[in-house]
Amino acid sequence: MALMRWNPFRDIDRLEPFREIDTLQRQMNRLFEELMPTTNGGEGIGFGFVPSAEMEETDDVIRLKLEIPGLESKDINVEVTTDSVSISGERKSETKTEENGVARSEFRYGKFQRVIPLPSQIQHEKVEAEYKDGILKLTLPKAEADKQKVVKVNIG
Rank of each mutant, 00 (worst) to 15 (best):
38 T>A: 08
40 N>V: 12
41 G>L: 10
41 G>Y: 12
42 G>F: 13
45 I>H: 12
46 G>E: 05
47 F>N: 13
48 G>A: 11
48 G>W: 06
49 F>H: 04
49 F>Q: 04
50 V>E: 07
51 P>D: 00
52 S>P: 01
53 A>S: 05
53 A>D: 01
54 E>Q: 01
54 E>A: 00
58 T>K: 13
59 D>Y: 06
60 D>F: 09
64 L>M: 07
64 L>E: 00
65 K>G: 00
67 E>F: 10
68 I>H: 02
70 G>V: 07
70 G>S: 11
71 L>Q: 01
71 L>Y: 00
75 D>L: 02
79 E>R: 05
80 V>G: 03
81 T>N: 04
82 T>Y: 11
82 T>R: 12
83 D>L: 14
84 S>A: 09
85 V>T: 02
88 S>I: 05
89 G>R: 04
89 G>C: 11
93 S>Q: 10
94 E>L: 07
94 E>R: 07
95 T>Q: 13
96 K>L: 13
96 K>E: 14
97 T>I: 15
97 T>H: 10
97 T>Y: 15
98 E>S: 08
98 E>F: 10
99 E>P: 09
99 E>D: 14
101 G>T: 14
101 G>H: 14
101 G>K: 12
101 G>V: 15
102 V>G: 05
102 V>A: 08
104 R>K: 10
104 R>A: 12
105 S>R: 04
105 S>E: 07
105 S>D: 11
111 K>F: 08
111 K>H: 10
111 K>C: 03
111 K>S: 10
112 F>I: 02
113 Q>E: 13
113 Q>W: 01
115 V>C: 05
117 P>E: 06
118 L>A: 02
119 P>R: 15
121 Q>I: 09
121 Q>E: 14
121 Q>G: 08
123 Q>Y: 12
124 H>S: 11
126 K>P: 05
126 K>Q: 11
130 E>H: 04
131 Y>L: 03
133 D>I: 09
137 K>P: 04
137 K>W: 02
137 K>L: 09
138 L>P: 02
142 K>D: 14
144 E>K: 04
144 E>M: 07
145 A>R: 15
147 K>F: 03
148 Q>M: 06
148 Q>A: 07
149 K>I: 09
149 K>D: 07
149 K>S: 06
149 K>F: 08
